[in-house]
Design a protein around this nucleic acid. Structure first.
Lengths: 203, 203
DNA sequence: CATGATTGGTAGGACTCCTACCAATGTCAT
DNA sequence: ATGACATTGGTAGGAGTCCTACCAATCATG
């Protein structure tokens, strides 16, 4: 009975890390679902709404949105129809490209999108208690992981600083060692973005 | 234009951590969906299958499974019907409690459940490259976060060592500072379980 | 301007996920 | 024992996800 739990087997650590990440991801999904449902929306619709708010016009297109959510385009088309029916989004026909409708949030849509941000709150409360010395390495770890997962093909669009052509890591010492060559600004770990609108993938 | 990005605003770090966690969670969902789909299953069915394999009989019940997946019980009931139809699960009527059917994996179900574990692979590949000195604190961070999220009500069932009544943290120095009073064993960070079958919540 | 590629809508099917509702079973007190 | 109550989980029905096909517009090109 002394070999039942392979305490010495070393890939265990990685397996547990995966389990923990999955668990936290599940919690995020639950949080989003609750917050969405409270306003009569589904998670997909909520995600869509938040993207429509934060993305510039040229990325507010069905195929781009679908790639961002990792779903096929009809899924986005369906969800958009639901959002239009609920009066949160308008689908216009005046864009530069006649094939893509221009997608806009209505005022009600803006408001709802703002409110939906509340799904972060339980996470922020949970994180507030942890010391910064723990969170900065954690963020760096996750960003590195995201980069790798992108190379594994699991994440289609990752606009993280660490994969951006404008990013210069560890340029100098101090609390803000990194540098963004686009904004021409030094960056600390806490400034590293996960989904930067200006991101351009490194060659 | 010098105030556009609030580089000095400090809650940014937490917000970015949430974004990064969400991203990784999304990747996990995508990985599971792909692996499931490859075998003609949906993510929910896949999750169910893997639980049916790893849980003892007394937890293989519709309501318990539903709580674990954070969904309502008809969702589990539906998914089970699909799995039965696909010949991966049997729903019997011989249990100790006449209300709950006894759920069993068929041989094909066992096989499929094993194969589904492959969804971890891209994550394991991504993690293999990172040094242990980075992963151990990351796991501890995530476990602490899971504990807090449970208190926030986002995670219904978390059977992590850190919330278990048998767990004695930091009992002694060395590479295995913790101790499990049930198994009567010292535990290192890599041994901390995320979903221990023996878990009993601390009073 | 014809040809082919891009874009996104619709159709239809399996499934998720919910709220209700219901039937069967278990539990407990009298 | 025997109601009363609670637990368990099935079914119904509805909105929505998510897919593969297919199709109609609209661009881009030579």
């Amino acid at each position: 009975m002394s070999g039942r739990l392979p305490l010495g087997a070393r890939p265990e650590l990685d397996a547990r890390l995966v389990a923990a990440l999955e668990r936290v991801g599940q919690a995020a999904r639950v949080a989003l679902r609750r917050e969405a449902r409270r306003r009569g929306l589904t998670p997909t619709q909520a995600q869509l709404l938040s993207r429509l708010r934060s993305e510039p016009a040229e990325r507010r297109r069905v195929d781009v949105l679908a790639a961002g959510l990792d779903v096929a385009h009809p899924t986005v088309s369906d969800a958009l129809s639901a959002l239009v029916r609920k009066g949160l989004v308008t689908r216009g026909r005046e864009g530069p490209d006649g094939r893509s409708p221009t997608l806009h949030l209505t005022p009600a849509g803006e408001r709802t999108a703002d409110e939906l941000e509340a799904w972060h709150d339980p996470f922020l409360r949970a994180l507030a208690a942890r010391p910064r010395a723990e969170k900065e390495p954690a963020l760096e770890f996750l960003l590195a992981l995201i980069g790798r997962l992108q190379r594994e093909g699991l994440i289609t669009v990752a606009r993280t600083c660490t994969t951006c052509r404008f990013f210069r890591p560890d340029l100098h010492a101090g609390p803000r060692p990194h540098y963004c060559a686009l904004l021409e600004r030094p960056l600390g770990t806490g400034d590293l973005r996960v989904d930067c609108p200006e991101h351009q993938h490194a060659a």
